[in-house]
Design a protein around this nucleic acid. Structure first.
Lengths: 252, 252
DNA sequence: CGCGCGCCTTGACCTGGATCAAATCCGCGG
DNA sequence: CCGCGGATTTGATCCAGGTCAAGGCGCGCG
């Protein structure tokens, strides 16, 4: 868990970018904004970058900001006093961080890769959503997607076997990375520890199940264990035990 | 699982009531509405009642309405094809049912007790939230509360022991029913099966853990097993394994 | 008042995943 | 090219909670 300075870790690239050119412009909380609203957002925004492993917010912290994840990947985790940890969410580009109307974070937010947030000072943002329905409506939409995803995950945590859990997670990552071409392939952003934390399992069990899925020909694993590919997605889907309803774990 | 007619199960009492006199007026989605907005809601609303055990919506159903639970108690459940079931939420008075912007229910909704909903035709409601920020803001607030609750539950399902899970649930029910007086007392709305479904356990394990908590003097159980009381809430809290952060499972 | 039917509880046993403990692999700096 | 440290895999064993199987208990009904 190396803690590097971070703020300057990824200099320049995204500094005070024009919203119009933002790669997630049409998926983030600002998706429905018109020109004027976008201007207003652009006025108040600022960027900040965190290095892998760095803490973006501690459980119970008071956050002076909310924002959108622009680049990278971060995890949300909750823990029990004795050290047991459960990941309760994952942030990917366009996901929203923080909660208007409450300043204390109910979970810890940690950067997995180099991560850049587009930040808005809380008070200003709250005023903004009070009078621009385009933002609050989009935020409602995104929150409901996350709620659905959280509930899908509750089913996984409450009822799925270890094999099904691992297959479900791999399926999600693969679908995300999908390039439409048959042998699906993806580089895992999460290490075994983070996967175990997400799945309510231990590292050892995750590793064993990945090995089992490989033995059974459901997936292939490249050297290093971080890249997986899947010759037949339907087989993986079957191993995940899902009913045919589309999964919603990573909301759009 | 007796399926009674239901629609006429609770005649009169709540039929087309005046919103101003509604017992949950200040907690539901209409909490922030002013007089005009309330009139508009009152125009479009209608009541409907379900009997215990009746299905309000099936997983995947298209719901023509959204609404607020006015009276009773209902469960949200998701299931796997082979019959495994996980409860993913519970609806209590003032909770909102359904999702503006999407018509298919992602889970099954079932009445636990006699349950009355205050219904709004979907299209009309969507138009309403598009131009009354008071409703959409409140709905966002409620959704974020539910999201927090879902994430607390993920921690429970992923990492807590059977004893901790049962203690957590009992603590929630007791706190809800709290009359401030020391020996907390509550009648469980949920039977053992529903509890097991909520907690990601089996009926037998729930029963055994309740017995164990009683043996250990953490709780007392009245004849019939449906009423529990707790001489010392701090002890129960301890058995639940929570850190001191207030739990949010049943959002306000 | 006794009977039957849902629940709930309890007991005996089994197993999936946790725990404890090595190996092995890999990227990296020297 | 070598050695080191962190991540991953694999093996051996344990145990919490699931499964299967009887009982109890309370309640409504004939």
């Amino acid at each position: 868990m190396k803690q590097q300075p971070g703020s300057a870790a990824m200099p320049g690239t995204l500094a005070t970018q024009d919203c119009g050119a933002c790669p997630i412009r049409h998926r983030a909380v600002c998706a429905k904004c018109d020109g004027d609203e976008l201007d207003r957002l652009q006025q108040m925004k600022s960027y900040r970058t965190w290095a892998p492993g760095e803490t973006i917010a501690l459980e119970g912290d008071t956050l002076p900001f909310v924002g959108t994840l622009v680049r990278g990947c971060a995890t949300l985790t909750k823990s029990l006093e004795d050290g047991r940890v459960q990941m309760v969410g994952m942030l990917m580009p366009s996901d929203f961080v923080g909660r208007p109307g409450r300043s204390a974070a109910p979970y810890e937010v940690t950067a997995v890769t180099d991560t850049t947030l587009c930040l808005f000072e809380r008070q200003g943002f709250e005023r903004l959503i009070a009078d621009t329905p385009h933002v609050s409506t989009r935020l409602l939409e995104m929150s409901l997607n996350e709620l659905d995803a959280a509930r899908d995950w509750m089913l996984l945590l409450g009822r799925k076997t270890a094999r099904e859990r691992v297959a479900t997670l791999l399926g999600l990552v693969l679908r995300r990375a999908a390039t439409q071409t048959a042998p699906l392939r993806a580089e895992l952003p999460l290490g075994r520890e983070a996967m175990a934390s997400f799945l309510g399992l231990t590292i050892e069990t995750v590793s064993r199940q990945i090995s089992a899925l490989r033995r059974d020909g459901v997936i292939e694993v490249a050297a290093g264990g971080r890249t997986i590919l899947c010759p037949d997605f339907a087989t993986l889907r079957l191993a995940a035990g899902d009913n045919d309803n589309a999964e919603q774990i990573f909301p759009d």
